[in-house]
Amino acid sequence: MRPSDPFFYLFALLALGLARACVCSQHLLRATLYLAGVLFCGAAFYVILDAEFLAGIQLLVYIGGISVLLIFAIMLTRGPDLLKDRPSPLRRNLALALSLSFMGLCSFLVLRTDWPAALPAEPHENPVRDMGVRLLNPGEGGLLLPFEVISVLLLCVAIAAIYLARPGSGEERPLS
């Protein structure tokens, strides 16, 4: 047992409970709060996995960015009928069956696989710096191209979002 193992179980339980609450809560805003909790647990997982930088990014982007954005969107568009999102029993059962069978199938595969032993560790004096170097390295093993691509993607997304949400793009002409 490593010192981080109890934390794994602690945060795993927390994450699962919050995830369940998130998908089952009838109240969207609360669901968003639960989602933020799940994501926070994700950050904790990253810390457990020695990825502190990723944890920071997770907090910054998911909780600081995405959750806030979601809350904004819900606040801006709250329709009275969907504050209570209550799916029908049929729908619930069907979804339950599907997701449970998915989970069962995958668990079966996970459990019966012989996972290889860990390879020797690659020491890193400063992982954040190394990641930065990898990201901006155009050569072997470098991720400059994906990095640029994702930058362009983000730019495009920003433009698209502005265009879509521009006043007058939704109100005057209904989408149907």
């Binding site: 990723l54 990014i57 997770q58 982007v61 998911y62 960015g65 995405i66 954005l69 979601l70 969107a73 801006l76 568009t77 329709g79 994702i150 993607l153 983000l154 997304v157 920003a158 698209a160 979002a161 502005i162 265009y163 879509l164 949400a165 793009s169 939704g170 109100e171 002409r173 209904p174 989408l175 149907s176």
Partner: peptide, 22 residues
């Protein structure tokens, strides 16, 4: 994470006008 952020932004960009028009 970057992709998820992009996806959410775009989804919201679609969702907000949709919710206004529906």
């Amino acid at each position: 994470i970057a992709l998820a952020a992009a996806e959410v932004v775009l989804a919201l960009g679609i969702y907000v006008p949709l919710a206004r028009s529906r």
